[in-house]
């Protein structure tokens, strides 16, 4: 499981790629644009002069300035860049879509107005928490997300992935937890009613060994363990 690249790393690499390409292209265009604006600025002052010299003579319709070959070159170049962007990111897109390992730790997530309910399956029994989830560090987690009432979106900035919670449908989303214990917030990213702003959940990442020790000790011990962990962060 150690060779699995976490979702947040994949996201950052793509974000950097797009930013580099964007800076080169948009930056180049902008520089050329600024140069044009200053270089070809007319010396005549705008409104007042034209008012005095109101054109009355020939009324003539002009159609276009003929394009030069450079236009086609630019078109071709952008086409190539865009095509490369698509091709190079398809693999990452598919990678983020499907859980890369069968050993992923499953957590069921159910959105409701206004909160998140999490379910673990421990020895065939279900352990529920509401408003917080305790996860082992450095582990691939598979969230199975749905909604009990309206359209929500589950995600956390630290995962850099999110998925919609839609009533009647089970969506999966995988992520790899950070290597060290930490605490952060999961949000709802789709307007789901007047309490949308309060629809958050604490994500508590704990030491992997400690977590699985409790997990393997059976449902009751596990429930007590996660409640104890959560109490620390209230």
């Amino acid at each position: 499981m150690n060779d699995i690249i976490p979702t947040y790393d994949v996201w950052w690499s793509l974000f950097k790629l797009f930013t580099t390409v964007g800076l080169v292209i948009a930056g180049g265009v902008t520089l050329f644009y600024i140069y044009t604006l200053f270089r070809y600025k007319s010396d005549t002052t705008p409104e007042d002069v034209s008012l005095r010299e109101a054109a009355t003579g020939i009324r003539r319709i002009l159609i276009e300035t003929k394009p030069r070959g450079v236009t086609r070159v630019i078109l071709l170049l952008t086409g190539v860049v865009v095509f490369t962007l698509i091709v190079t990111t398809i693999d990452e897109t598919i990678y983020l879509e499907y859980t890369p390992t069968e050993d992923a730790f499953p957590v069921w997530v159910t959105g409701f107005q206004f909160g998140w309910e999490f379910e673990y399956e421990v020895d065939g029994e279900t352990v529920k928490t509401v408003g917080y989830v305790v996860l082992p560090a450095d582990t691939v987690i598979e969230f199975k997300v749905t909604s009990r009432d309206v359209f929500h979106t589950f995600g956390a900035a630290e995962f850099k992935v999110k998925v919609d919670a839609i009533p009647g449908i089970l969506n999966t989303m995988w992520t790899k937890t950070p290597p060290e214990p930490s605490v952060f917030t999961a949000y709802c990213y789709e307007l789901c009613g007047v309490g949308h702003s309060f629809m958050t959940a604490k994500v508590i990442v704990v030491d992997k060994d400690e977590f699985f020790q409790a997990y393997n000790a059976g449902p009751e011990k596990f429930k007590a363990y996660i409640e104890e962990v959560a109490a620390k962060y209230r």
Binding site: K144, T146, R148, I169, L170
Partner: peptide, 9 residues
């Protein structure tokens, strides 16, 4: 390809 699912309760 969607998976139908209705949470219990």
């Amino acid at each position: 390809t969607c998976t139908p699912y209705f949470p219990a309760g």
